[in-house]
Design a binder for these strands. Structure first.
Lengths: 148, 148
DNA sequence: CATTTGGTTTGGTATGTTCTGAACCAATTG
DNA sequence: CAATTGGTTCAGAACATACCAAACCAAATG
């Protein structure tokens, strides 16, 4: 299961395998934090690899950590709103797609390319779809913000 | 513009730069087909690279070709329903995400993990979103099929 | 102040990807 | 049938990446 989810995140977030496997692990186990050592054991990876992967996940705010009083160890756990994170990511992808699509249309229009006119119906459908998508994502993010 | 669109396709379709640049070119110019030679000149790439890239694009049905009577050259152009192609791709991604999400939920439920119960409202929102997304894509694909 | 703990940084290796030139091949042309 | 055309296949070069081991460092401990 960690493998499967990790692989999914690998293409979704464009991160190295180890990082996404750690992320998947922290999402799936959801205990109150795993230590650096535990992550090393679970992934069977070296200290340095775990270190860099953890820092990557921290930088991108996919995970966070806390410390116990009187203990130097850091305890890592998934960022609380990781679902929102995932959704925001999709939303950004859709936005990028919409923008690029508009750019393409504009480019074709100004070059008087035949297909633009021919496929006006088609582009309308695609544009409508992308707009609806954007709407859906925004309202969902709004919903998520409301309950937190 | 070719660069920009090519880069977008690179992460979208997980293809080498040259292949996506050729694809972007064929989408943007939209003339009645470009020859092998023209693609070599436009991309300033070697014969072998263009060959493999073209074959990749043909295999994945992103482009197609036709020949002129009395001419051995192949003329390449984008597949007519490339927008549908793009949308189908998004749709598949969304479906994959939905399936993985359900798997994750099931996994958490059977392991009696605290967070699953805690975030039931959250997961409902996310599940609803993914379902709506799937719906939107399917109806859009349906619309596209209708006009063609 | 020497040692242990909890990591980080550095240098290097193994692996994979993308592109290239050169050899090759099948079909057409002279 | 020799030469050209339109491409394919193969071997390798160049580059990027993911990881590791070892050296290192700062903070806490004895």
């Amino acid at each position: 299961m960690i493998e499967v989810l990790g692989l999914h995140f690998e293409s979704l977030y464009q991160m190295p395998p180890l990082a996404t496997r750690i992320y998947a692990l922290l999402i799936l186990t959801d205990s109150e934090g795993h230590t650096f050592e535990e992550l090393m054991e679970a992934t069977e990876a070296s200290k340095s690899s775990v270190s860099t992967s953890i820092n990557l996940l921290l930088q991108t705010e996919k995970i966070e950590y806390f410390t116990m009083p009187g203990d130097r160890k850091r305890h890592f756990r998934k960022n609380a709103d990781y679902l929102k994170n995932r959704l925001t990511n999709y939303s950004q992808q859709a936005y990028k797609e919409l923008k690029l699509f508009e750019m393409t249309c504009a480019f074709m229009k100004q070059s008087y390319l035949a297909s633009y006119l021919k496929n006006e119906k088609l582009t309308t459908i695609y544009r409508d779809y992308l707009e609806a998508l954007k709407q859906l994502m925004e309202t969902t993010i709004h919903k998520l913000e409301k309950i937190s």
